[in-house]
Design a protein around this nucleic acid. Structure first.
Lengths: 121, 121
DNA sequence: CTATCATATGAACATATGTTCAACTGTTTG
DNA sequence: CAAACAGTTGAACATATGTTCATATGATAG
């Protein structure tokens, strides 16, 4: 029978069992880590960032967004779906148009924080 | 000659030329938007989040990280490279081992903010 | 120098992601 | 109802991404 840990255990290596224990405790909640990375993934595409910044100036309909970004309305719609799935934006229908807006100020804060980080580096 | 904007202009549609102009101004700096999304992409994988949280407990060598996360040292090393490329972690060699640590408290802050966001939703 | 250990890296692979294209809803207008 | 318009969606496609495997590098011990 093969040692179950043989693929990543380095018997002779770990000089710091204490720090391993602390680290294990810090990363034990894998579902939460997944949720955190999923949250960040929403912001990991420049088209979505641009949509969020556009909506930061106020509510917009899909065709206005696509006009402002110079991209097809289909591409924008697909990305709006992702943002909607992540509860980053809200939508409201008004006749033929659908208007999107940031779902709360928290989104604005996240993007602003990142922008500042980028600029200060 | 084909209209250059024909792929995304919806001549009859945009009811709000003013909001389009505001939005265009907000998203004009495409390089910065790319930098922002690249920054977020660093945090968009759960393995990298777990590495960052592990390092949040203190400096660790690669084999300790792989032991703590239960993943191969190769996979960890590849991700550390990404994190190093994004200046999120620093490395220091001590004999045969290489010790990694968070490059500054800002990283800790980013992850903590996201964690709070996830928990409050 | 040789062997060994810790880490890094490149190639290969499977999966995920973003855009396009075409087709489909749903709403308004005639 | 039919036509036109705004938006959505699914399939197809190309590219990006993460892990594995094998191998390379760098440091230390013998």
């Amino acid at each position: 029978m093969i040692d179950e840990e043989s693929q990543f255990a380095h018997e002779g290596c770990p000089p710091h069992p204490l720090s391993i224990e602390k680290a294990k405790a810090a990363v034990e909640n894998e579902d939460e880590m997944q949720a955190i990375s999923d949250f960040f993934r929403l912001f990991s595409d420049s088209t979505r960032i641009r949509i969020l910044l556009a909506l930061g100036t106020g509510e917009m309909c899909v065709c206005d967004i696509s006009e402002a970004l110079g991209m097809t309305q289909s591409a924008i719609s697909h990305q709006l779906r992702v943002l909607r799935g992540g509860n980053l934006v809200r939508s409201r229908r008004d006749g033929k148009s659908v208007f999107y807006s940031l779902s709360d100020d928290h989104v604005r804060t996240v993007v602003r924080t990142a922008t500042e980080h980028i600029r200060e580096v």
